[in-house]
Amino acid sequence: MTTRVALMATCLTDTFFPDTARAVVRLLERLGCTVEFPPAQTCCGQMHYNTGYRRQATTLARHTARTFADYDAVVAPSGSCAGMVRDLYPGLHRSTVRVAGRTYELSEFLVDVLGVEDVGAYFPHRVTYHPTCHSLRMLGVGEKPLRLLRAVRGLELVELPAARSCCGFGGTFALKNADTSTAMLADKMRNVLDTGARVLTAGDNSCLMHIGGGLTRLNTGVRTLHLAEILASTEEEPWVATP
């Protein structure tokens, strides 16, 4: 029996990082899942919620709950959006409780539901991993992403100093407190550069967009890549970014 999975691409990944969503599809299909993409999905409402617009967040949450109502497993390549659904949806509306219990962040779904750590990936690069705040502290993914990365053939995993420190993104925080956000980013970038890694990976494109936006601004030569894209890559079919 194959596992039927609904992909919650998240608005940011759908709009700016389609390669990540395609990588999730490729990875899950390789592991024997049937992946569906409910086309009505838009945004989970986290930005509204975290900025203090609870009413509008609830409207978006109800839309999201309706969109994914028919699925037993919803997988998002984001600890932040999965955290919003799982931790905060139950408190928003009675119709948004059910989807909360069925939503997983990608690494959790792979390790806890599918029970795999070696997904057969090949990625011959020096990589460091940033554990994103919401995956760490809302979802408690712990070591799962690292266990997945350690099983990737050819990958040299280097430890990121002060890894658990926030990169400074924080949604609208990056705009409302741009100076503080940038100071946090500077320290995160310094730690990334100290590792000598060529690739920084994480489970959230939002944080990667922030750190990556700083890394390219300074022409550091370090690229950011979502965990899903590394895990999707194999020796036969290495992952190639869409031009």
Binding site: C133, R137, C166, G170, G171, M184
Partner: peptide, 9 residues
């Protein structure tokens, strides 16, 4: 209340 990235530490 906005002086936080909501990192949860």
């Amino acid at each position: 209340p906005f002086a936080s990235s909501l990192c949860g530490a």
